[in-house]
């Protein structure tokens, strides 16, 4: 069991979900409420990582990080080394790769918030910021958590992008999935199995917690069934 690879992977996944929480919320807000007619193009771009082979995404990220791209040059001028084959480069690639897994649940939960609540908030003098933090975000709790957990779990299991952007540098860019690949190549099936099992368990726990939250198993500030009763006007039991 390569603990170094596991902690590196967990660190990467945590940072990716944190970054996607900060980045994904404004993107999802814009996608939900913008009236720009070409909005669908942005939506498609955000969803691209869902369908692109990770190697394609990894390839373009590698090019973008390389010394000949403006980003690569800027980073090199700033830090003295290129982004490719570093942890930062890997982080950047992973953020892009998991973007739809955060943005889509965020946007879906924002869209499910009754627009009349937003209108009510506006007539009560609330700014868009206040409406977002007091109304939209609390009512989207389950969706936001789903997005964070999904992007975490998705980053745990990524392989293609890591290989293309990060390579296989122990302690820097060697993640669990690369480790398993190496073990199998070396015919060390016992270690590969152990590591794979750890990844399987973590992913299962993460996903089952998402489904449990969406089923309302845990109390999450807002009781979903009660919410439906309020908006749908159905009689309560």
């Amino acid at each position: 069991m390569d603990w170094q690879a596991l902690t590196l992977t967990l660190r990467l996944a945590t940072l990716v979900s944190a970054a996607l929480l900060c980045l994904g919320l404004p993107i999802a807000y814009w996608i939900t409420y913008s009236r720009w007619r070409w909005k669908f193009l942005i939506e498609a771009v955000v969803a691209l990582p869902l369908v692109l082979p990770p190697t394609v995404l990894g390839f373009y990220v590698l090019i973008a990080l390389g010394p000949r791209s403006p980003l690569g040059r800027f980073w090199q001028a700033l830090t003295g080394h290129t982004l490719a084959f570093t942890f930062e480069g890997l982080l950047l690639g992973s953020i892009l790769y998991s973007l739809p897994f955060a943005v889509q649940p965020f946007a879906a939960s924002f869209a499910a918030v009754d627009r009349r609540l937003l209108a009510a908030s506006a007539t009560l003098g609330a700014s868009n910021w206040r409406t977002f933090f007091r109304i939209i975000l609390p009512l989207s709790g389950a969706g936001v958590l789903t997005g964070v957990v999904l992007s975490f779990a998705h980053t745990l299991g990524e392989f293609g992008v890591v290989l293309m952007v990060g390579g296989n540098i122990p302690g820097v860019t060697r993640t669990v999935s690369i480790d398993i690949y190496d073990k199998v190549q070396a015919v060390d099936y016992a270690s590969a199995n152990l590591t794979a099992l750890v990844l399987l368990v973590i992913s299962f726990v993460a996903l089952s917690s998402v489904y449990a939250i969406n089923r309302g198993v845990f109390f999450l500030g807002v009781n979903q069934t009660r919410l439906r009763g309020e908006n749908g006007g159905e009689p309560r039991a």
């Binding site: 009349r116 609540l117 209108a119 009510a120 007539t123 007091r134 109304i135 009512l139 919410l227 908006n231």
Partner: peptide, 15 residues
């Protein structure tokens, strides 16, 4: 605008 508005379906904040 400072105009009070009570909506037909009230739009109380459920949370």
């Amino acid at each position: 605008r400072r105009i009070g508005y009570v909506f037909q379906d009230l739009a109380l904040f459920p949370h």
